[in-house]
Amino acid sequence: MSTLVLLTITGLGLGALYFLIASGLSLIYGLMGVLNFAHGAFITFGAYAAWWITTHVEASAEAELILATAFGLVFGAVLGALIELVFIRPLYRRPIEQVLVTVGLALALGALVFGIWGADPKLFPDRPGEEISLPSWMIDTTTILGARIPNDRFVEIAVAVVVLAGLTAFLRFTRIGLIIRAGVENRSMVTALGIDVRKTFTFVFAVGGALAALAGVLSGIYFSTVDPGRGTSLLIFAFIVVVIGGFGSIGGSAVAAVAVGLVQQYANYYAADWLDWSGAGDVAVMFLLAGVLLLRPEGLAPKVAH
C-alpha cells in the first residue's frame, strides 16, 4: 500500500511538470496551429536561467529559490514573446514553415545551451559550501499511509493546481481569455467579427514560455539538477499529453498529464520488476498514446479551450 501511495504521488508530481509544459503547447497549437518544437528550449533555458541567478546571489535557501523561480519565469516569457515576434509572426499563413522554423530553433537553441554550460548536469540551486541547497523542509518527508514522500512533490503538484485554476479562470473571465477561447474554436470567424486574433499570439507564446520555464525550474527541484537534455526529454512526454488531451484543451491536458505521469510510474515499478527492464514506464506511455489515438483520433476532449 505504501508503495502504491508513493508511486501515485510521484506520478502526480511528474504529471504536474507535464501539465505545465503541455498547457502552453496546447494553447499555442489550438490557437495558431503551430506545433512548437522550440518549447523544449523554453524549458531548458528557464531552468538554466534560474540556476544562473542562484550562482550570483547569496541568500537564504527560500529566498534564492523564489528569486530563481521568478527569474526563470520572466526569462521564459521574454524568450517566448521574442520568438513569436521575430520568427513566427513573419511566417503567418505559412503553417508548415512555422513548424520548420521551430524545429530549427529547437536544434540551434539546444546546441547553444550545450555550448554555454556544457554537457554535465548542474546542481540546482547552486549553493556552494551548503550541505543541502534546497530549503530543508522540501527535502524532508511526510508520511502518508505509511509512505514517506519527499515534500517537493507536493510543491510541484500545488503549483500545477494553482496554474490550472488560474488559467481556467483567466480563459473564462477575461476579455483576452474570451478571444483566445473563441480563436481556438474558430479563428476565421473571430477575425471576421473584427477582432485581431494575432494580438493574442505573442501573449500566448509568452504564457507558454513562462509556464515551460516554470516546469524547467520545478524539474530542477524534482531532479535536484539541471542538464541540457532536460527540455527535449520532457517535451516528448508533453507532446504525448497534448495529443491525448486534445489540442487547445487545458482541462484535457490536465487529465492526460495525470494519466501519463501515473502510467509511467506504475509501469516503471511493477513492469520493471516483472520484466527486469527499466524502460517499461516510458514504453507503456507510448503505447497509451497509440491506443488512445486509435480509439479516439481527436484526443480525449473536443477542440475547445476550457
Binding site: 520568427f87 520548420l100 522554423v101 524545429v103 530549427g104 530553433l105 529547437a106 536544434l107 540551434a108 537553441l109 539546444g110 546546441a111 547553444l112 550545450f114 555550448g115
Partner: peptide, 9 residues
C-alpha cells in the same frame, strides 16, 4: 548544430 539550425531557419 547551432550554426546548422540557424542556417536552416
Amino acid at each position: 548544430l547551432f550554426l546548422l539550425g540557424a542556417l536552416f531557419v
